[in-house]
Write a protein that binds this DNA or RNA. Sequence first.
DNA 1: GAGTACCACAACTCTACGGTTGTGGAGTTG
DNA 2: CAACTCCACAACCGTAGAGTTGTGGTACTC
Lengths: 115, 115
Amino acid sequence: MTQTMTVPHPIPEALAEMIAKRFRVLGDSNRLRLLDALRDGPLSVGGLTQATDCTQQNVSKHLGILHEAHLVKRERIGTQALYSIADPAVFELCEHVCGGLRRNVDDLSELLPGG
Amino acid sequence: MTQTMTVPHPIPEALAEMIAKRFRVLGDSNRLRLLDALRDGPLSVGGLTQATDCTQQNVSKHLGILHEAHLVKRERIGTQALYSIADPAVFELCEHVCGGLRRNVDDLSELLPGG
DNA sequence: GAGTACCACAACTCTACGGTTGTGGAGTTG
DNA sequence: CAACTCCACAACCGTAGAGTTGTGGTACTC
């Protein structure tokens, strides 16, 4: 499962920008919380607006960004728009980041007495 | 190795912001290229300046950001500053992102005739 | 058809951040 | 000490992007 080193080296400028762009899409806490809210299943814009404490317009805007990045799927049901996770792999990404953060904290902890 | 679902759900606002912040650090192509340039081993600021086409001040600034995020280590040797990868796991992150991008492209490819 | 949800687009403001310029400090060399 | 190299800090400018406000469009309901 751990496909190793498919990224060319040195990395082409264009690829670096593509990867960076996706990282930027994930670099907003509201968008992460929207994705998190969709873990239990599809939700409408109204439902997602309640899940976060943003305005409906703001939620719609962030969902548009996530949708353009193919991170969520959109399905229209009557007057509603049902959003769902397009690729569950995004959560693995967050797990990886969390793992890195944890190692950082552990390293700091060892530097302190009683750590 | 695949530690599953250690991220709480629903995700706390503060944690979402921490994860988002790290994503933002990785959301710049020059920083990704700096990390990529360090894959072969430690390099000085001068060396990294040559590897990219940025000014020395810009490289130093980005390295400062990467260092503050604990993504690179710094070691002073005389007048030089040797930077190196602090946690090789960042490359796995990039691999994951690349995997997601590939799936997106493949999905698009199937929609086109001859795909 | 009138009224009412539900959603998304556009324009605007304000902040965050990338890049440049200028400069100063630390270390080495002669 | 003087000159030079290497690096990082600070101030500035320009732009990308997050959030708000306003609004229009689509689909149900009565």
